[in-house]
Computed example of a mutant assay.
Amino acid sequence: MLTPAHLQALDAALGAAPENSRRMLQLGWCRELAEEVRMQLIASGLISADYVAVQCTYFEKSRGHNWLVALHQDLSIPVKMRIEHASLSGWSEKDGALFVQPPVAVLEQLLALRLHIDTCGPEDGALKVIPGSHLNGRLDENDKARAKAGAEAVLCPVAQGAGMAMRPLLLHASSKATGSSRRRVLHFLFGPPALPFGLEWA
């Protein structure tokens, strides 16, 4: 998805970025990149032409800045303001932004694109996913255990400059990095322009 020249420019831009941030779309260069990614996803038939970029999170994992992520689904979305409704739960604030867990019908419409600035192999904490798990809605801990027992997790190495598209409801996890390289990822989230219940994208 990215040319060598583009990767070089991103490397320079990310030099001033925090190691982990959920609010990258506040930066002009990231908004421009999100539009380029959006057009590629439209051309690939993965999203509709009216879809918008609603969030970009930056992850940088290395042996010096390392963590383990247990098997989970991404259930929260960034919104502008709090709306009281029985279908909305799990309100939280992260990095100064407001998040909520909407109904499954909303989450099923979303698409995430993990854009890899560096090559990401097994030793770099590449994602492991349970194929097809996004088709089963929101899963509780017992559901997750059954899904894990019923299907082998698949490791998803990604080449430098490539992207990995996934549904947020897909069960995914990542191990700690064991190699000496960096794993930098820009995790974009795309969704329909309008939300139900009076919600607005942040």
Rank of each mutant, 00 (worst) to 15 (best):
V185G: 10
R22G: 07
E200L: 00
K61E: 15
V69R: 12
R183P: 06
K128Y: 12
M1Q: 02
N136L: 11
L195S: 03
V54Y: 02
A17E: 15
H6I: 12
L111N: 02
L127I: 11
S133H: 01
V100Q: 03
L88G: 09
K61A: 14
G163R: 00
L71H: 02
A165M: 06
R82M: 10
S48D: 14
V106Y: 11
Y51Q: 02
R82N: 01
T178A: 00
M81N: 00
R138N: 05
V54S: 06
F188P: 03
L135I: 01
L110G: 12
E141T: 06
A147N: 04
V185Q: 13
S92E: 15
G132V: 04
M1W: 07
R184K: 14
L75S: 05
K61T: 15
W91D: 07
A70P: 11
E93M: 11
L199Q: 00
F188S: 04
P18G: 09
P122I: 06
P4K: 10
H134K: 01
A9E: 15
G121R: 00
W91A: 08
D118Q: 08
K144L: 08
P122R: 01
S48N: 10
A9I: 08
D50Y: 05
T119R: 06
D95E: 13
V106K: 02
R23V: 12
P102D: 14
L113E: 09
K176H: 07
V185I: 15
L7F: 14
S76K: 05
I77L: 08
A12D: 15
T3V: 12
M39Q: 14
M81R: 00
H85G: 05
E60Y: 11
A112P: 07
V185M: 12
G161C: 07
E123K: 00
S92W: 09
G64I: 09
V129W: 05
A153D: 04
H172W: 04
I83C: 03
W201S: 00
P18Y: 06
